[in-house]
Design a protein around this nucleic acid. Structure first.
Lengths: 347, 347
DNA sequence: TTGTAGGCGTTATCAA
DNA sequence: TTGATAACGCCTACAA
């Protein structure tokens, strides 16, 4: 059996109180001599406090619940890593759960983790627009007032803390750059329209167009699903629309376009400029390296933890919502428009 | 405050025992009527048992500790996902910790998680050949007899459970295939020599050579560090050695070779065959798609969990160590040797 | 069929 | 300067 406080107390001939006091460095007036004795016997018996018992009385577990859609997704795994490591520095451990985008699992993990006494929850909800989902979330929050932080998916609610990236700005940045490179027929391959990030990025795309007085052409917008295949499928359509550039709402779809472009003998960026979104690690190793919109994952992770620690320690003052700015990363997949459409070249 | 068992007992006018009995579906002869009442009031009060208190008395937490070198690495994040999801099905939650390859952190997390009462630990050690590390590990194990499973890094010790991939076979498979394609000058870009996986794979490489009666040429072996850059750097050296094919011990280094080959105007696979190791998701989207050795991550994850559950429930019978077989995945980066060395073509 | 009481390993309050 | 003792929320023998 594991050594307990009692064991140490017995072995040193003192009471549990005394032992607990010195082992926890609580303010006390125990003489160095006794103190030494206790520390020594604790070490000799290899005593380590039972965290569960401690939690039982302190009501703190030094544990965080992390709920993510899919930790095998590079974006989330990077985030998870930063978050875990930083919490670890503060002496916290993290539970994690994959929801695969199923809102029911959001709730299930939330409850599971709360049952386990986590001090706080950090999550990227899978629940988007559904009001009912929001209600459930609020209810859970109300029943157990532990801080909940929404990463990447704000709930527009004063109940929760949140960190987000300005998606609209991301869409704007990508499109605006393409325009500045002389493109006029700029295609846009979106993510599922039901996702807020898709509609936000699309708004940015439209804003950039408008700023340049380029009329918005719905025929240049296609709905994808963030998968490689949906990028591959989109290419021929866009070519048919005389697009000279494509803004893909994630890098995976851009990779699909890359692959397909070889079949069509289209050279990126000479015949077609492509810009992605996310900045996944592989981008710089593609041929040509993919220009993209980068989200500051590490900063987000760090902010998340630091903010949460501030809240947990009651020292919090800053606003509950935080917005990070995405950044344009120009690599080799975008070029000046040579004033001829791809179509003509193919002929 | 959260509803407790006591609250439910009070509200239903019954004792805690009775309530506990029915809420836990323990064998009892409580009439359906009482039972109903209890279930109803529990639901009304939104009662959820406090896992910590339960653990306190049952000595089980239904929690697993997962210790990995780097969860932002695709291989581990996939593994982590499979493991977490499967444990979740069994009603277990998982703590995770990143060690970044630092053995001290292995021990720290091990202790931390054990302090938190995890029922078992699953880890990929960062400690390799050091005997002292092994001792510490055994000591921790001895002090708390909870099952520990080593994934990917066997300890050759009967203390621990283990799952591994036959690395030697992987090296053999890759090399043998290259030989069958007519290659004789096959370069080998290893990982750090201090890692067992590197030396094992190298042994496989040598075995394949020997089987084909091709003399082993040390000049064709170069030590890399699993990073893209080390692949890039290796190329010119290998070309100088008249290699017609390269076996890279991971895909990232193969990607480095891809990148560099463009600078040298070398066409893969016509001028140079390249085979990697790992089978990361990007492989099939490279140009050409990368041939590689694939490790059955999902199977490994599933086995890990199922085996652990068997052990935890005392129903375990099978051996403690398990060896999975890697598989050759042929894509477009390997071709028949055209009987001329790359060097000649370049001239 | 249901209730009482002890205990899990700690912390914390109060007394000595 | 130190020690009893209650409490945390629950389970479980044992009693009734």
């Amino acid at each position: 059996m594991r050594t307990t406080l009692k064991d140490v107390a017995m072995a040193s001939g003192l009471s549990m109180t005394t032992v607990s006091l010195v082992l926890n460095n609580k303010p006390n007036r125990i003489p160095p001599k006794t103190r030494d004795l206790i520390v020594r016997t604790a070490k000799k018996l290899n005593y380590r406090p039972n965290s569960i018992a401690v939690s039982m009385v302190t009501k703190k577990t030094h544990t965080i619940g992390l709920i993510l859609p899919d930790i095998s997704n590079l974006y989330f795994s990077s985030l998870a890593k930063t978050i875990e490591e930083r919490f670890h520095q503060y002496g916290y451990n993290v539970f994690y759960g994959n929801t695969n985008g199923r809102p029911e699992l959001d709730f299930e993990y939330l409850n599971l983790f709360i049952d386990r006494g986590v001090d706080a929850i950090i999550m990227t909800t899978s629940a988007y627009h559904d009001k009912r989902d929001n209600e459930i979330l609020k209810q859970i929050y109300a029943a157990n007032h532990i801080p909940i932080m929404m990463v990447d998916r704000g709930m527009n609610s004063s109940y929760f803390l949140s960190v987000e990236v300005d998606q609209e700005l991301g869409g704007f940045l990508a499109t605006d750059y393409l325009i500045r490179m002389g493109h006029r027929r700029i295609a846009c391959l979106t993510g599922p329209k039901s996702l807020k990030i898709s509609t936000d990025r699309l708004q940015g795309y439209r804003d950039a167009l408008q700023k340049a007085s380029i009329p918005f052409d719905p025929a240049l917008v296609l709905e994808g699903n963030f998968g490689v295949e949906s990028g591959a499928k989109a290419l021929s359509y866009f070519l048919g629309q005389n697009a000279t550039a494509v803004f893909c709402m994630n890098d995976m779809m851009a990779i699909g376009i890359y692959r397909e472009s070889r079949r069509y003998n289209i050279c990126i960026p000479n015949n077609l400029s492509v810009i992605g979104f996310d900045d996944i690690f592989i981008d710089e190793f593609l041929e040509p390296p993919l220009s993209t919109i980068s989200q500051p994952i590490d900063e987000i992770g760090q902010y998340t933890v630091d903010k949460m620690m501030a809240v947990l320690s009651g020292k919090d003052d800053s606003p509950k919502a935080k917005l990070f700015k995405p950044v344009l990363k120009i690599r080799g997949s975008t070029a000046k428009n040579e004033k001829m459409t791809v179509k003509k070249e193919l002929k």
